[in-house]
């Protein structure tokens, strides 16, 4: 298990230099069957991460570049009349894949956004009154430009909530950037990546996440954290039960990635910024600052 994980992480790390933590978070997100939102400036390696992840895990991969004139049918697919057979044939859209990279999701209109988000939640697509199941596992990596940039439609809070995690990659460190200058083209490297695991192993790993143990002490800590977000004057809106569950699931996956059969407070703290950051709002700053304060203020040990 540990071997597989470290192999995956190092494989992706060879393409995306110095971003081990983000790679692990993305992996944890995938293992806990959630979807990932990457928020960063263009050119930071968002696409590379998504592509590499799909490659290494041996999953089918499609990419949709979102634009403002996109329609839901462009993602979901359309039924086209076949003159020879005299019937309608459904042409699957890019959503029918195991890893879907929805690039710059906030550049499309809300209508198109919600079509995708519906598919994410239900893992199925309804077109022309027919319900079609999406392939399993279905993992959406959406990227988004920071909202200040022009020509973007902000994702509403309710849809942000559909993403298990939101991470940002950030600039590489100096060493990583130097290595990047010196190394070969990431695109070629990407092509060279071989799948490390098969679908069965991935499924097994996903089921293992559910078996990670959580003790009373840990659940108490989680409870205190969630309660604090709901009671603290800093936060206008606290964490929803879905948010709390997401936090627990992500923490379990994180513990599993670190080869542990039980969740430690560290695990919760490690995933907290990416799980809660986009779910919290308040007067006391943006989500990340709130999370930072939250971690500092809530005692791990019960008083």
């Amino acid at each position: 298990m540990q071997k597989i994980v470290s192999a995956i992480v190092s494989d992706i790390g060879s393409v995306l230099l110095g971003k081990e933590r983000q790679v692990k978070l993305a992996l944890a997100c995938l293992l806990s069957k959630g979807h990932l939102l990457i928020e960063d400036l263009p050119g930071m390696g968002k696409t590379t991460l998504a592509h590499a992840l799909a490659q290494v895990l041996g999953l089918s991969y499609k990419r949709v570049q979102f634009t403002s004139d996109m329609l839901p049918a462009d993602i979901l697919g359309v039924s086209i009349f076949d003159r020879e057979s005299g019937q309608f044939h459904f042409h699957e859209g890019p959503v029918f894949s195991q890893v879907l990279l929805a690039d710059e999701i906030n550049r499309s209109s809300p209508k198109t956004q919600s079509a995708l988000l519906e598919a994410m939640e239900e893992c199925q697509v309804s077109v022309d009154g027919e319900t079609r199941l999406l392939p399993q596992p279905f993992f959406v990596i959406a990227t988004q430009n920071p909202l200040q940039q022009s020509g973007t439609f902000a994702l509403p809070e309710s849809q942000l909530d559909r993403f298990l995690m939101r991470i940002s990659l950030g600039y590489p460190t100096r060493e990583a950037e130097r290595a990047l200058y010196l190394g070969t083209d990431p695109r070629q490297q990407l092509a060279k990546l071989k799948p490390r695991i098969d679908l069965a192993t991935l499924r097994k790993m996903q089921s293992l996440v559910g078996q990670v143990k959580t003790s009373d002490s840990l659940l108490n800590y989680l409870e205190r954290l969630v309660l604090h977000t709901r009671q603290s004057p800093d936060c206008a809106v606290g964490l929803s039960p879905r948010g709390a569950l997401a936090l627990l699931r992500a923490a379990k996956a994180w513990a599993l990635l670190h080869n542990r059969g039980h969740v430690l407070p560290e695990d919760i703290q490690a995933v907290l910024p990416s799980v809660a950051g986009h779910r919290l709002q308040g007067e006391g700053g943006n989500g990340d600052q709130l999370v930072e304060r939250l971690v500092r203020q809530v005692d791990i040990i019960a008083a």
Partner: peptide, 27 residues
Amino acid sequence: PPAERLYRKFCRRMARAGVKRDAGETP
């Protein structure tokens, strides 16, 4: 829970020895 009570005790002693635990600091 007993474990946390014991750990608190440990923390108190450590604080007396000069290293105080912060609330959000993991063990």
